[in-house]
């Protein structure tokens, strides 16, 4: 299958056919694809599938790199072909792979959870936002650029803005420091969250209110931007432990 082999065959007249080798490779590629497809389905078997194990993603990547290499090397004949073709193809490929890796890493760096120990992911924000817009129905979808800028800038600006919203809307019931008021508002400075401590939970509490207590729905009075800001701020109060209302609900670890 190498070039040397090829040119020998051509020298002696009719070139040697690779048909059998191609078909073998085709079958191999099919099998590899089938294995790739089987991996997500293994999820339904917890005794085999352990989501905590990080081996699945590298395995999937390795299989696709193998397929990539097989098609380029054998079907496209690059393996035994001239160096100039390898250079022309592989050097831009290396640049492309570098760009790809940089973009993926950069994305992880930029969108790290923000706030001290605040485990908010972009998915939480989406879910909270979608729920809020569905429940209020008035707010048009936020432009993606605006969201990303806000998300990246969250550490500095939004806590300040959030505090302004808190002072305006929340402190009446939750107290100046978020310590809570008897029969009105829960203590927001301890580790307990009656309705859960994720971004989504807090967002829902503010936007929709909570049935069975005095927490009102703010979905129609606050903009979604303001709700997000105040949620960031409230979540940052966790662990300041101002003396006030007692702990209600489950303790949240982070």
């Amino acid at each position: 299958m190498s070039a040397a082999h090829d040119s020998h065959a051509e020298h002696s007249g009719q070139p040697h056919s690779h048909k059998a080798a191609y078909i073998r490779l085709g079958i191999l590629l099919t099998v590899v694809t089938a294995v790739e497809l089987a991996l997500p389905f293994l999820k339904t078997y917890p005794q085999i599938w352990d989501a905590g194990q990080p081996m699945w993603m590298p395995l999937l990547v390795a299989l696709s790199v193998f397929k990539f290499g097989a098609v380029v090397g054998e079907f496209m004949h690059l393996r035994g072909d001239r160096g100039i073709y390898k250079f022309l193809f592989l050097s831009p490929l290396a640049i492309a792979a570098t760009i790809f890796l940089l973009l993926s890493t950069l994305a992880m760096r930029l969108f790290l959870p923000f706030g001290e120990g605040l485990a908010v992911t972009a998915k939480d924000v989406q879910a909270g936002y979608v729920k809020a817009t569905k429940s209020s129905g008035a707010e048009p979808p936020l432009a993606d650029e605006k969201f990303n800028a806000a998300f990246a800038d969250a550490k500095s600006k939004q806590f300040v803005d959030g505090k302004a919203v808190f002072v305006r809307v929340c402190k009446v019931c939750h107290g100046d420091m978020g310590e809570g008021k008897p029969a009105l508002g829960l203590n927001l400075t301890d580790d307990c969250y009656k309705y859960g401590g994720t971004f989504k939970d807090l967002y829902t509490s503010v936007a929709d209110g909570r049935a069975g207590n005095k927490m009102p729905s703010q979905g129609s009075t606050l903009k979604s931007e303001e709700i997000r800001q105040v949620v960031y701020y409230v979540r940052s109060l966790k662990g300041t432990n101002v003396a006030g209302e007692p702990c209600v609900g489950d303790k949240v670890a982070d």
């Binding site: 924000v125 989406q126 936020l142 990303n148």
Partner: peptide, 8 residues
């Protein structure tokens, strides 16, 4: 991938 998981 840069924008993966950032849809609202």
């Amino acid at each position: 991938f840069f924008y993966h998981g950032k849809a609202l």
